[in-house]
Structure formats: structure tokens, C-alpha cells
């Protein structure tokens, strides 16, 4: 595993839409579980993809064992709200009487960001859970987080709640969550990017916003879809048709862009881990294993 991540209990994987956050989150989870860490990988209220990528049925809204040391869950607002309320209220009967009340549902809906709070709260709660022997139920939790703008909103929620809601059970929880997120010994963000100009710019901006607005620490950048150089200068011969020369040029333009993006990203002062583009008909377990092997440094592109 990337050095800077190896001792963290919470990994947050985020980046621009479409850069491969889910793939990276799944690969990190796979690697983490293999190292013997009891790992929970969370998707946030989305079309679930991680368990299927691993060749398993969807996990759904309940924490589900996927393989040895690896659990998955797709956190949904309604069950999360219920779990959260039950934790506060203790009794199922009170929950039904109160939370299934129309008036109450109405109020809860409009308490700012309550939905995000319970989603994040459920995820972070799993970091506190203990087994009968006193050890943590999960050594590590990995979040396949929302994309850029929404990630910032999502992880700002505890602070928003603290600024909005006066002292009470909710505010106490929000304070705990905020403290966990900003604790650099516990939490690290993994920024995922692609070797293209717009995603790279967005990565730089995301890094800045996460540290200035949310005060969480980014620990590494994964540069997904990296295209290594293939043709050296001696191989740009004249005898080829223009169309074939274009094929070479296109490849080299992308390879050069990969290198320059890597350089730009390295200005963040974080390790930048290139993961080469994987060409496959079916992006499944096999491809995921390849990504994982690059993340662990087992293979260098």
C-alpha cells in the first residue's frame, strides 16, 4: 500500500466524476483486506458497483461480507436515518411512534444536511464499533466518496451542523465526526485524477478546498489511465502512411500528456501513483487486481 496510507483508519477516495474513484476504492480495499486488515468499503447512496466488480452479488444497505477480511455496504439515507435514530432513542417502539409520524418526517427533512449527516454518521460509526474481545470491528473504513463539489459539501456537513444546530445529540455527534475527519493520524484523502488537463486542474482545486474548507488532509494522488511512452524518436519513420503516423503521434501525445500531468500533480507535494490504462473487454475482477498491484507498488508502469 502507498506508504502515507498504510496506518490510516479512514480512507476517503474522491476526484472529478468519471476518473475511476470506485475502481481505486475497490482496489485499495482489496489490498487492505489482503494485508489482514478487517476492511469495510462504503459506497454512498449510489448505484452499487464495488461488490459486483469483485464478482460478488450487491451488498445493499447492510454491511455484507464479501471475502476474507472484506465487507461492503452501499449506505442509503433511510436505513441510515433509522439506525441513527435507534441509537439515540434506544427503543424500536419509540422510533415507530415518533419517526413514522408525518410531522416529524417533515421536520427532519428540513433540518439542513441531516441526510448527509446520517450517511456520514453511519460510515464513521463503523470505525467505533468493537468486537466482544474489545478490538475494533473494522480496522479500516474506505469511502468511495461523491465527486468534487459534492464531496466538499458532504465532508463539510459536520461543520455545517455545528454552525447551525445548537447543542444536543446531533451536535455532539457532528463534533465527533468533524474531529475524526480532521485528525491526520486517522484520516487520509486519496485524490483520483486522469492524465488530462481539466481533471488535473480540478484535482489541484479539490486539494486546496479540502484542506482550506474541510481541513482534511490529502495523502496521495492516484493518476489513473496513465499512458506510458511506447515509441522512441527513432521510430517515427517516414515510410509510414499519414494515418499510421497519426496513430503513433496520438499515442505519444497522450503519453507526453500523462507525464506532464504527473509533473503538475507532483507540485502538490504528495506521492503521485500512476496506474496505467487497462485495456480489457470486461472491466471486472482481473482488471481490478491489476489496478491493486499498481497501487501497492508491485508493478511500475
Amino acid at each position: 500500500m502507498i506508504e502515507a496510507l498504510s496506518d490510516k483508519r479512514l480512507l476517503i477516495v474522491t476526484g472529478k466524476g468519471g476518473v475511476g474513484k470506485t475502481t481505486v476504492a475497490a482496489a485499495l480495499a482489496l489490498d487492505s483486506a489482503r494485508r489482514g486488515l478487517r476492511t469495510l468499503v462504503c459506497e454512498v447512496n449510489t448505484r452499487e458497483r464495488i461488490a459486483p466488480l469483485l464478482g460478488k452479488p450487491e451488498a445493499g444497505a447492510e454491511v455484507t461480507s464479501v471475502e476474507e477480511n472484506l465487507w461492503a455496504v452501499n449506505v442509503r439515507p433511510e436505513p441510515a436515518m433509522r439506525e441513527y435514530a435507534l441509537m439515540v432513542l434506544k427503543f424500536e417502539s419509540i422510533y415507530s411512534a415518533v419517526f413514522e409520524n408525518r410531522v416529524v418526517r417533515y421536520f427532519l427533512r428540513f433540518i439542513p444536511s441531516l441526510q448527509e449527516l446520517v450517511l456520514l454518521g453511519k460510515i464513521l460509526y463503523h470505525l467505533k464499533e468493537k468486537r466482544p474481545d474489545g478490538s475494533f470491528r473494522f480496522d479500516r473504513v474506505i469511502i468511495d466518496a461523491p465527486a468534487t463539489g459534492h464531496a466538499i459539501t458532504f465532508f463539510s456537513v459536520p461543520q455545517v451542523i455545528l454552525d447551525t444546530v445548537p447543542p444536543g445529540a446531533m451536535a455532539t455527534d457532528a463534533a465527533w465526526m468533524r474531529d475524526f475527519l480532521v485528525d491526520r493520524a486517522m484520516t487520509a484523502v486519496v485524490l483520483v485524477s486522469l492524465p488530462e488537463e481539466l481533471p488535473v486542474n480540478e484535482t489541484l482545486e479539490l486539494h486546496r478546498q479540502l484542506s482550506e474548507r474541510v481541513h482534511v488532509t490529502s495523502a496521495a494522488v492516484v493518476l489513473n489511465g496513465f499512458i506510458p511512452r511506447r515509441f522512441d524518436d527513432a521510430e517515427k519513420p517516414s515510410g509510414l502512411s499519414p494515418a499510421l503516423q497519426d496513430v503513433i503521434r496520438a499515442h505519444e501525445v497522450r503519453a507526453a500528456l500523462s507525464v506532464s500531468c504527473q509533473k503538475t500533480l507532483s507540485t502538490l507535494g504528495l506521492p503521485v501513483v500512476p496506474v496505467p490504462r487497462i485495456f480489457t473487454d470486461e472491466f471486472g475482477r482481473g482488471a481490478l487486481e491489476q489496478v491493486a498491484s499498481h497501487l501497492t507498488g508491485a508493478v511500475r508502469p
Binding site: A85, V88, L89, I94, A97, V98, N101, V103, V104, F107, L108, F110, I111, V165, P166, P167, G168, A169, M170, A171
Partner: peptide
Amino acid sequence: VAKTISRFTGTETLQQL
């Protein structure tokens, strides 16, 4: 009902809302 929600959100929250 209000008392129970306020256990969840804090009393002042409902007042402010």
C-alpha cells in the same frame, strides 16, 4: 412528539427552525 424530536436535535434547533 416534539419532546422526542428534541432529544434528537436539541431543543433550540426546533425553536430556530
